[in-house]
Design a protein around this nucleic acid. Structure first.
Lengths: 166, 166
DNA sequence: TTGGAATGTCAACAACGCTGACATAACTTC
DNA sequence: GAAGTTATGTCAGCGTTGTTGACATTCCAA
């Protein structure tokens, strides 16, 4: 295939074949991306939904249930089922809001932080080795394309979490 | 953040923060990546599993059930449930192998090819616009990082389908 | 005080993974 | 030609995680 040579010439011949390759790259890479945490979660009674909840609670401590709902894009019933098991297992705790007492602010317990670490260590290790193998230029391109692929709403979630206090 | 400047200097400071950003980029981008086909599938009685089956039958016409199993990485029971509905709906047909009569060679019907086209048109449109927005260099990097992120087995599937006659 | 927001919960259902067991046909090997 | 293996299909059951719909509680805000 002449794919790489066209790209290095600075031109974009976006044949269906090229685009198909990109689509399959996403498919296969995502499998790799999730496989390490999945292996860890298998042992416990958790799945990917638990991982996602733990991830976003970790990165935005004190986030509310509503915020988590909008980030994860699932129904509250679905999220609640997951959060309940995390509460029960002492992974996450919910503190009633001081300003607005309807809100529950979510935090990882020490135990939860420990699980988060083992999950994200595994995932980061793969990401790190992929980044190293690909090189800095590639990493930049990787992030650029992924951002362009997001829905605008999700892109805002992705970029703006700090500013929003999420 | 100094993320982009470090990358453009040709150095890789792989902080946990950088890696977390990459992880979330995968998460949010994958949501966008699947959202257009998902909308189409919603109307029909199909889900992502049907999409995947249709995709790989399209790109490797005559592939066997066994091949599809190894590409998709699911159990035969799970795949069979999906294939059965696709047979029943006249989307996919199975032809008994000529060399080995145990094998079923899978092909899209005209109807199936029509669905495939509408699914992949939607997905390619997003991929194309992401590629255009990001530029050729970024596209190259995108693919490089994704390949590095795959499990070796999956990477072989990804790269070698033509050579294997899959 | 009334309306709406944030949250929790119950019930039911669907998609799609899984395991285990069993059946059939066809190829391969001794 | 018998025996073993391979490719496939199927039944039954179960788990995770998504969905809708309905209803309750608490609390903020106008």
């Amino acid at each position: 295939m002449a794919e790489t040579s066209t790209a290095s010439e600075g031109l974009l011949f976006l044949t269906d074949e090229q685009l198909r390759k990109g689509i399959e790259a996403m498919f296969f890479a995502y499998r790799g991306f999730t496989s390490d945490p999945d292996r860890i979660l298998d042992g416990l009674d958790y799945g990917r939904a638990h991982h996602r909840a733990i991830h976003f609670v970790h990165r935005s401590p004190g986030t509310t249930v509503g915020n988590l709902l909008s980030i994860l894009g699932v129904t509250k019933q679905s999220l609640n089922r997951v959060l309940r098991t995390l509460f029960d297992d002492g992974m996450v705790e919910a503190r009633v809001g001081s300003r607005d007492k309807r809100e529950r602010h979510l935090h990882l317990t020490d135990k939860g932080a420990g699980l988060e670490r083992s999950l994200s260590d595994a995932q980061r290790a793969r990401m790190r080795s992929a980044y190293r193998a690909a090189g800095p230029q590639a990493v930049q391109g990787f992030r650029t394309v992924l951002e362009a692929m997001m829905d605008p709403d999700l892109r805002r979630q992705y970029q703006g979490l700090k500013e929003n206090g999420l």
